[in-house]
């Protein structure tokens, strides 16, 4: 076979090769994103995602969406503009959650015996689905950043509330009131994570009384819009094929 001849000899073969190629790329993409996004999120979201006694109504709500919209924005840029595939955000979150669950179950629970109900990951899927749908429906980076980014930030807390609410039930413990999540943090000793490291309930949103979660969510949503733009550009830049053209 010469270099100018095709590797396939029929349409059926071409389709088969194309599908094989699809699965190879998707498999590779999934695990590359899983690794990269997981490391990124652990480094930037870290303890806020690790422990229930960090999942508060101010900083967790603010930080987690902002640092997690990054990879979805970048992967969307590649998959949408190159292939019109609107599952960039969802595939990122599927990868991240699989990696996180493997880590939490095998490492946090399997090796160090922290109960899973203390160290489960945050749920990012509602925002990811909406982000993908907005991109698909509008076909616009700006609209996706504004509408989708806003939705990403706003859906985070309510999307997680059914999971964490039972841990915010109060308990009286030796004369002090705390939530069950606080009690988990106190009971399950983390030698390297003293209580003062916890960045929770800090800030000056006192004007809003007990209703600070929506305010934090709106702020997070606003910053998520900006971060979306930035990482969407990163994604577009990384998805360039200039180097292939040169060859």
């Amino acid at each position: 076979m010469s270099a100018s001849q095709s590797a396939v000899r029929s349409r059926a073969e071409a389709v088969k090769v194309s599908r094989t190629f699809d699965w190879l790329i998707l498999f590779t993409l999934f695990f590359v994103v899983l690794g990269g996004y997981h490391i990124h999120y652990m480094l930037t979201g870290g303890d806020w995602d690790f422990w229930t006694d960090w999942k508060d109504r101010r900083l967790w709500v603010t930080v987690a969406p902002i640092v997690s919209i990054t990879f979805p924005a970048a992967v969307q840029a590649c998959l949408w503009w190159r292939y019109r595939l609107p599952f960039g955000a969802v595939v990122c979150v599927l990868g991240l959650l699989l990696g996180e669950w493997i880590n939490r179950y095998l490492n946090f629970w399997g090796w160090t015996y922290f109960p899973v109900n203390f160290c489960f990951p945050s749920n990012l899927m509602p925002g990811a689905i909406v982000l993908d749908v907005v991109l698909m429906m509008t076909g616009s980076m700006t609209a996706t950043a504004v509408i989708g980014g806003m939705a990403w930030g706003l859906l985070f807390y309510p999307g997680n509330w059914p999971i964490i609410a039972p841990l915010h039930v109060p308990v009286e413990y030796n004369g002090m009131m705390m939530t069950l999540a606080d009690l988990q943090g106190y009971h399950y000793v983390r030698t390297g994570t003293p209580e003062y490291i916890r960045m929770v309930e800090k800030g000056t949103l006192r004007t809003f009384g007990k209703d600070v979660a929506p305010v934090s969510a709106f702020f997070s949503a606003f910053v998520s819009i900006l971060i979306y733009f930035l990482w969407h550009f990163f994604g577009q830049w990384f998805a360039k094929t200039d180097f292939v053209k040169a060859a």
Partner: peptide, 17 residues
């Protein structure tokens, strides 16, 4: 699900710090 959760857990408090 958020509404149902609020009905199921009407008493919740913020983390203590």
């Amino acid at each position: 699900s958020m509404g149902n959760t609020n009905e199921q857990f009407p008493v919740t408090t913020p983390l203590q710090a």
